Every structure is written in structure tokens, then in C-alpha cells.
Amino acid sequence: MMKGVHFLAIVALLSLTSSLVSAEDPSPLQDICVAIDDPKSAVFVNGKFCKDFKLAEANDFFFEGLQNPGNTENPVGSNVTTVNVDQIRGLNTLGISLARIDFAPYGENPPHIHPRGTEILVVLEGSLYVGFVTSNPENRLFSKVLNKGDVFVFPIGLIHFQFNTGHTNAIAFSGLSSQNAGVITIANAVFGSNPPINPDVLAKAFQLDQKIIEYLQKTF
């Protein structure tokens, strides 16, 4: 009888442990969240308050303008028009967002990551060379040339890019699994941080002459 009781106790303990292990913290919706004890100085983690349900209206779930092309007259030749919780307040807590990406001929959306969201992209016009790289130590590249109507997925947190391979404009739309997926453009973050990263650090990391690093920091 005692063995049966012990067995039931072990099963119950394992079930509880399994339940605790499967639980996890909610995904962060901003880059940093410094803990404080004074509630008067606190902000919501998602950075938004909720409107009284009785005051909600259709415009809280509406956005217009994605039919308009973005300005691609910039060094990289692309423009991203985001539609996240800042543009559609009704997206708050729903875990999705959207973006239109315009490409000039041979323009690119440079290597970047979304720290809080997986991206699924569909090409509307033109052809794009796209890809993502897995984490260390494999650093395996998954790449594909996409044509009109093709779809590609970029897993959360992995470096990825899109490049217009044609001599005409290209357009793509992407959906993201976060109301605010965030974006870290690798070159901007590394060479354009404020304040700048010590050039000695970057010179060693990239195995480049320090003068080249300093030039890149000035560029960004």
C-alpha cells in the first residue's frame, strides 16, 4: 500500500514539474525593461494603456495608405512601411503586425533581425533574392530567389535580408508574429551605435584594419 502511495506522489510531483517547465515568461514587447520598486514611475511592458471598451471604434482597427509606394531614394534603395501597434491601436495584445517593403532596382533590405517576431513575406511585384542565416556554430544560409506570388519565412531572431535582383521596382508585403516585432539592422547597430563601440573591439571582431572600422563608423 505504501509503495502505491509513493508511486502516486511521484507521478503527481512529475506532473507538477512538467507543468512548471512548460510554462514560460511572456515575450518582451520592447528592447529593455528595467525593474523598479516605485509603481508611480512604472510603465506598462507593452508601452500601451487600454482604451475603455465602450469607447472603442472601427478606426482603432483601421489603417490606410499601403497602396502608396515608399520612398526608395536612399543609400540602400528600399523603404519599409510598418503597420504595427503604433499605427493600429487595436493590434494591442493581438500579437501580429504588417509591413510593406518597396525596392528600387537592385535595392535591398539590409541584413537585420526581428528580436520579437517571425516574418512571412510574399512578393507582389518583381523578383527578390532572400535568405536567413542560422545561429552559431553552423551559420547555415537558407536562400531563395522569389518571384511574384512566392512566399518565404524568416524565423524569429535570425539574421535575414531581401535584395531586388531586377532592373525594375519590386514590392513585397510581410506579416510578423508580434504587435511590435522590432528591427535591428546589423550594420547600423554595429557601426552606428550611440555612443560608438570602441574601434579596437570591432577591428578584432571583423579582422579589419582600425582605419576601415573608423571609416565605417563615420559612414553610419
Rank of each mutant, 00 (worst) to 15 (best):
S41M: 13
I32Y: 14
S22L: 13
L8I: 04
L16N: 05
A35V: 15
L13E: 06
K54R: 11
A58M: 12
V34K: 13
C50K: 13
V5I: 10
L8A: 04
L8P: 02
K54P: 02
L8Y: 05
T17Y: 13
A56F: 05
K54C: 01
D38I: 01
T17L: 11
C50P: 07
V5H: 02
T17R: 08
E24R: 15
L29D: 04
L20A: 10
N59H: 12
P26Y: 10
D52N: 11
C33V: 07
P26M: 04
A42S: 05
A35F: 11
F53R: 13
F49D: 12
K54Y: 05
V43L: 06
N59T: 15
S18V: 09
D25H: 10
V34Q: 11
N46L: 00
D60E: 01
Q30H: 07
N59V: 08
V34H: 10
L16M: 09
V45S: 14
I36S: 01
K3A: 09
I36H: 03
V5Y: 08
K3I: 06
I32M: 12
S19I: 06
K48T: 08
P39D: 01
I10S: 04
F53K: 14
N46P: 02
A35L: 14
I36T: 09
L8S: 05
N46M: 03
K3P: 08
A42R: 05
E24L: 06
V11F: 11
A56D: 09
S15E: 02
K40C: 01
V43R: 08
L13G: 02
I32D: 15
V45P: 06
A58G: 06
P39R: 03
S15D: 00
V45G: 12
A56K: 15
D25F: 13
A58P: 03
V11R: 03
V43F: 06
E24G: 15
S41C: 09
L29S: 03
